[in-house]
């Protein structure tokens, strides 16, 4: 019973990691930009949610009405600059690492280095939950999971069904050919990066819903979110959700049945095993993609 409950809540937590990872995975897979600044955007998203909810009295979830468009512009602008300057691959990793520490320091200057957390009266979700039978669904992670499903399904459909989506995938496969077919990769890239940043705004909101934030919080995300991205298969949004849920569930089950102390040990060992046998993502068999 405890184990089942833990697995359930772990899966929901995995939804939050999936939202964090989705944008990172897409820009990495489609644009070859490994954007560490994504974590900075999530951080800013969390702080903006905190600020808007606390000072303006907005419902924390509704803050995305403001933060999503804002982040979209930031993300698109960033991609514009990256594209102009020819920053991709490992160079993008380094440039965006520089941007990440700039963001973290700026956040610290604006909101102080201390923990910020929405108080109970502005954030009714923090301690709320939904019960079905004997199972409890904690509100913050349940909401995160719902968003994860919506975002992942929407992104997947857009990539599969729309012209822009197909164009993007073609571009990721072979740039030269895609350009020859008249695909305007600049504009598409900006839109994709914008959407990815918008998902960071959502991820930030979701994190702030259930947690206290400090400017150095992003370092706690990097390890696990990268694991989710790679387990899911770079550029595969569907895989991201699956990987997030698996990571969350595994970690929670180990935590509940053995000890929380063992959960990073088991989790990262499992990640290594998964990488060894499914290096291109859980959904891609090892033989595909092998060069």
């Amino acid at each position: 019973m405890t184990t089942l409950q833990a697995a359930l809540s772990g899966a929901l937590v995995g939804g939050m990691f999936a939202v964090m990872a989705a944008g990172l995975s897409l820009t990495w897979g489609m644009l070859r930009v490994i954007n560490l600044a994504h974590f900075g955007l999530i951080l800013v998203g969390a702080y903006l949610t905190f600020e808007l909810a606390t000072s303006w009295g907005l419902d924390p979830i509704l803050t995305i009405v403001v933060t999503v468009p804002l982040m979209f512009l930031v993300g698109a602008g960033l991609q514009w600059a990256f594209d102009r300057l020819g920053v991709e691959g490992f160079a993008s990793l380094l440039v965006s690492f520089g941007l990440l520490i700039i963001v973290m320091q700026t956040v610290s200057n604006v909101w102080s280095a201390d923990f910020q957390r929405m108080e109970g009266d502005v954030n009714p979700y923090a301690t709320g939950s939904v019960s079905i039978g004997r199972f409890v669904f904690p509100a913050p992670t349940l909401i995160a999971f719902v968003f994860a499903v919506v975002i992942v399904v929407a992104a997947d459909q857009v990539l599969r069904r729309t012209f822009a989506g197909r164009a993007l995938r073609a571009f990721a496969e072979d740039r030269a050919v895609a350009s020859a077919f008249g695909i305007d990769h600049r504009r598409l890239g900006m839109v994709l990066a914008g959407l990815s940043a918008a998902s960071a705004a959502v991820a930030g909101m979701l994190f702030a819903l259930g947690n206290a934030v400090t400017p150095s919080t992003p370092f706690e995300w990097i390890g696990i979110v990268f694991a989710v991205v790679i387990l899911g298969g770079i550029g595969q949004v569907g895989g991201v959700l699956l990987a997030g849920v698996l990571v969350g569930t595994l970690s929670a089950v180990v935590s509940a049945t053995w000890s929380p102390a063992l959960s990073p040990l088991v989790l990262f060992s499992a990640i290594i095993l998964a990488l060894l046998f499914r290096p291109h993502g859980l959904l891609t068999p090892a033989s595909r993609g092998a060069r």
């Binding site: 937590v13 904690p138 992670t141 929670a252 089950v253 935590s255 509940a256 929380p260 102390a261 959960s263």
Partner: peptide, 20 residues
């Protein structure tokens, strides 16, 4: 007697163990 690592992110399993 539950020991958790400093970077714990998922508290629900710990909470469930305490409740039980």
């Amino acid at each position: 007697e539950i020991r958790y690592p400093p970077d714990t992110t998922d508290w629900a399993p710990i909470a469930a163990q305490i409740r039980d």
